[in-house]
Design a protein around this nucleic acid. Sequence first.
DNA 1: TCGATAGTTCGGAATTATGGAACTATGGTG
DNA 2: CACCATAGTTCCATAATTCCGAACTATCGA
Lengths: 111, 111
Amino acid sequence: MRPLPQPAREALTLAPVLHALSDPVRLELVRRARGNPEATCAVLADGLDVPMSTLSNHWRVLREAGLISMTVDGRHRRIRLRADDLRDRFPGLLEPILRLAAAESPDSGPL
Amino acid sequence: MRPLPQPAREALTLAPVLHALSDPVRLELVRRARGNPEATCAVLADGLDVPMSTLSNHWRVLREAGLISMTVDGRHRRIRLRADDLRDRFPGLLEPILRLAAAESPDSGPL
DNA sequence: TCGATAGTTCGGAATTATGGAACTATGGTG
DNA sequence: CACCATAGTTCCATAATTCCGAACTATCGA
């Protein structure tokens, strides 16, 4: 269950977080990650017509911005939303954004 | 005082708004616009070591995302934050972001 | 009319994003 | 162990964006 490198909580900055959330696919991945702790990349991306290499890039952007952490678990990567770190560093940021994203695509509808 | 074209309130979507806010320069411009209604481009960008053509692009991104409106006033463009439209369409979004941005660069400090 | 001011547009260079193909690493099976 | 399937990453060429200097436009004031 080796963890992949990620920025420390104190190193998180606002602009990269907003950038990471400014893509519809990534926003959806984050929403799913929140509702689905410890899920793998493939599970979270299920049904999203996006090629795997592009997804891998999206996960990297999310990880480098500090939104998620990844741990290697066998052949899988487990994704966890860094909810605590984000709440600590950017209180009041993530909840409204995810709420509005959910309002904009109620199901996991048209991204 | 002819207004420049801008997306209608109902047409605003989350991803472009987050994208517009994901750049440190634009974030700063939005902060200044909020504290400085009816100011011109030049006034809002004062002191920001960014070339004018780049600023013009930033204003366009902000306008097209629906964050600001611009009206032509003589030789000037007056910038207004679309606070009402944004609050209506994305309640709870802008305030936290601008608060966190202010916390991250208290003055208009290192962008 | 002329010049200065305020900002936009154009176009090329630099950066970033996309995605197919090849690769790596792990687990399961015989 | 040999072999294959799975899960994801990396490489790299193309496409799309962004940056910014230079040229342009529009308006005001003298």
